[in-house]
């Protein structure tokens, strides 16, 4: 691991800047409160004490997009809501990630009709899709950890 392995216990650790930045981004990723429908209830269950999300650094759900990094689109997005979703995504500062939680956000789910956007990736770029209707809190946590793995492999210039 570098210098300290050869010189013994100096009380310091060396690593690349990329790893440090990615480490800090994953350990304190603040989600934005974007619960729309049924998946929001499972997201709230994941936030509550049984399947705790705070152990992943997501203690609070920030209601303001300006203070959050992660947008978990939980629930079905209608054509009326899609411009609002886009606007909120644009208001989030870089670096930002999107998890499409549930079937309705990933592909329109069981609602294949005039009112529902068939997959939220028509509106915002999605990093991780979590399947389920609604996905269990454990599935959501699996999705978040997958996102963490993805972020840990990112290059520094990914969010220019």
């Amino acid at each position: 691991m570098g210098v300290e392995a050869k010189l013994g216990d100096l009380g310091l650790v060396t690593l690349t800047l990329e790893k440090a930045v990615n480490w800090s981004r994953t350990r304190a990723m603040w989600p934005m409160l974007f619960g729309l429908a049924c998946c929001a209830i499972e997201m709230m269950s994941a936030q509550a004490s049984h399947y705790d999300l705070s152990r992943f650094g997501m203690e609070l759900m920030r209601a303001s997009p300006r203070q959050s990094d992660l947008m978990i689109v939980a629930g079905r997005v209608t054509r009326k809501m899609a411009p609002v979703l886009r606007r909120l995504y644009d208001q989030m500062p870089d670096p930002k990630w999107v998890i499409a939680m549930g079937d309705c956000a990933s592909c329109g789910g069981i609602f294949n009709n005039y009112a529902i956007v068939q997959g939220v990736d028509e509106v915002v770029p999605v990093d991780v899709y979590v399947a389920g209707c609604p996905p269990r809190p454990e599935a959501l946590i699996h999705g978040i950890i997958t996102l963490h793995h993805k972020v840990e492999k990112e290059k520094l210039a990914a969010h220019a």
Binding site: A37, G75, T78, K80, N113, A115
Partner: peptide
């Protein structure tokens, strides 16, 4: 309202 109108009745 209407931001969650899913068209369930028609579906």
């Amino acid at each position: 309202i209407g931001f969650l109108h899913t068209g369930v009745e028609k579906n």
